[in-house]
């Protein structure tokens, strides 16, 4: 790659490597958010609705884990997936699947904790009405998630922003392998270490624009849906 090219020239020239990197970044982070959402949304809602001994401690832990250091998550997943680790036989280390796993774990507490918060507020409002309608437990979870859907879009976006912007886990479990596990953030780290600061900053701007684009799209969908469903 020619170091004199700026990021903008790369975009303008339709640089295939750059687009592959952007594509991988989006695919990994979006998949991680979807996986974390499938687990985290119901988990948060269940935590909002149920009362059991140790619940307060669990809420505190979950809130605290919103600030999990990516490097620690990355290292844990690394040790898990390493050939010497318990899941080594799957041969997943240094693959995109490993990066999705690590980012999903990183994002899961954010999604679950914020969902818990959102759903609990709505639950206070809905509680009597749903009890009076004889709505069962599982159905309550589904109803509250569906009726919080506009707020939950923001929750998922918070998760996506965290996943797309972090470099710690993907560097460790992905290995920053050219053409295979190299994402926007690891490329930025690499170009910085090569002293290509202009290119690194340019890539950083592209990453920020991408995150903005995803957010703007989600915002547009949200406005449209609110218009339709109130």
């Amino acid at each position: 790659m020619s170091e004199t090219l700026t990021a903008w020239q790369l975009i303008a020239s339709g640089d295939a490597t750059l687009f592959a990197i952007v594509g991988l970044s989006l695919a990994v982070s979006l998949t991680a958010v979807v996986v974390a959402g499938i687990v985290g949304l119901p988990l948060g809602a269940i935590l909002a609705l149920t009362r059991f001994p140790g619940r307060a401690a669990m809420v505190v832990v979950l809130n605290g884990f919103m600030g999990l250091p990516p490097v620690v998550v990355g290292l844990s997943v690394y040790l898990l997936l390493s050939r010497s680790g318990p899941l080594g036989e799957l041969g997943l280390l240094f693959t995109p699947t490993a990066m999705v796993t690590a980012q999903a774990l990183l994002v899961l507490p954010i999604i679950a904790a914020l969902t818990r918060h959102t759903v609990e507020d709505l639950w206070l409002e809905y509680r009597e009405e749903l009890s009076a309608m004889g709505v069962g437990w599982a159905s309550r979870v589904a109803t509250l998630l569906w009726d919080s859907r506009f707020s939950l879009v923001t929750v998922l976006l918070a998760g996506f922003g965290r996943a797309a912007a972090e470099v710690g886990t993907v560097m460790i479990v992905g290995g920053n392998i050219d053409g295979f596990t190299r994402t926007m953030t690891t490329t930025i780290a690499l170009e910085t270490s090569r002293g290509n600061l202009a290119l690194a900053i340019g890539l950083g701007i592209i990453l920020i624009l991408l995150i903005l684009l995803v957010n703007a799209t989600a915002w547009g969908v949200r406005v449209w849906a609110v218009e339709r469903a109130g």
């Binding site: 009597e128 009076a132 569906w146 009726d147 469903a229 109130g230």
Partner: peptide, 12 residues
């Protein structure tokens, strides 16, 4: 029961 301030679900 119809509550004094009924809750409308966020749907049509």
């Amino acid at each position: 029961i119809l509550f004094q301030k009924p809750v409308m679900l966020r749907r049509s």
